[in-house]
Write a protein that binds this DNA or RNA. Structure first.
Lengths: 147, 147
DNA sequence: CTTACTTCCGTAGTCAACTACGGAGTCAAG
DNA sequence: CTTGACTCCGTAGTTGACTACGGAAGTAAG
């Protein structure tokens, strides 16, 4: 799995991806990032694929997935047999769609607020809570832990 | 701000919303949930609005917001003056839209995988990493902390 | 070669978000 | 009017995700 150009030291890798060196080592221990083979008495080198993978991890985190879930997503990325993959993918797809629905509702409520603000002035409020439940009762629910 | 029926004890409130009593008390200390006035030598009571608010908090968490950000969202819900509100709302709107874009990409990649699995059998992989960056470089980026 | 910076690796500390504990006060079924 | 469950409140412990520390070994500019 060695890409053409594996030229980055761990420090350069960390700077490129915008994280701390210790975070990379932590992800390696968690099995989220690989630990490239190190030449006898030498240093490990990283490439562009590692950077992309790490950026993906950070984005997925921003999208509300925890490290175990990100591990699942990466197993799909890395490729597994259809039988397990499709079960897992359907599960992840369900939670992605739940998140999409919830965020779409927030988007509506927030853009409504912004519009209302531009129109009148004074006090305004934003029916965010109502928006998340309106005519979609339970669509975005508490299926939180391990979707 | 007392709703018509404030009949729930903290325990019933917690069960209804599917959280731990201690979590409610923790949110009260954080200023995310109110602490209803308690009658002289009595007990606090909670109503449907409290339940909805708490469910909103849990949903927003699932959507990748932290408690500070959820505090911001609730300030919009509760209503503030347009000047501050619209600035805050535009910011939140931006991060909601970033999340929507990232999730939409994941959705495409995952449903592609599921479809591929139904078609052929054997090994399949899922270009999740590529999907998050393809023709949208930096759209979902590392603007993580405090959006 | 020296010297200053890195890497390597294991262990320990921090921060956010809970979760548990314990003792005093409150409530409600019998 | 007792008794068992629950509330209140402050403090302490846990979990997930990092972040820091320190000493031995690697690296690279002068």
């Amino acid at each position: 799995m060695n890409a053409p150009t594996e030229n980055l030291t761990i420090g350069a890798f960390a700077r490129t991806a915008g994280v701390n060196v210790e975070t990379i080592r932590f992800y390696q221990r968690r099995g989220i990032l690989r630990q490239p083979a190190k030449p006898y008495g030498g240093i490990r080198r990283y490439g562009a694929a590692d950077v992309a993978r790490l950026r993906f991890v950070k984005s997925a985190q921003y999208l509300g997935f925890n490290l175990d879930e990100i591990g699942d997503l990466l197993r799909l990325e890395d490729g597994t047999h259809c039988r397990e993959a499709s079960v897992l993918a359907e599960l992840k797809l369900r939670s992605v769609r739940e998140k999409l629905a919830g965020l779409a509702r927030m988007e509506t409520a927030l853009s409504g607020l912004v519009k209302a603000c531009h129109a009148r002035k004074g006090n305004v409020s934003c029916p965010l809570i109502a928006s998340l439940f309106r005519d979609a009762r339970r669509e975005v629910s508490m299926s939180r832990r391990r979707a």
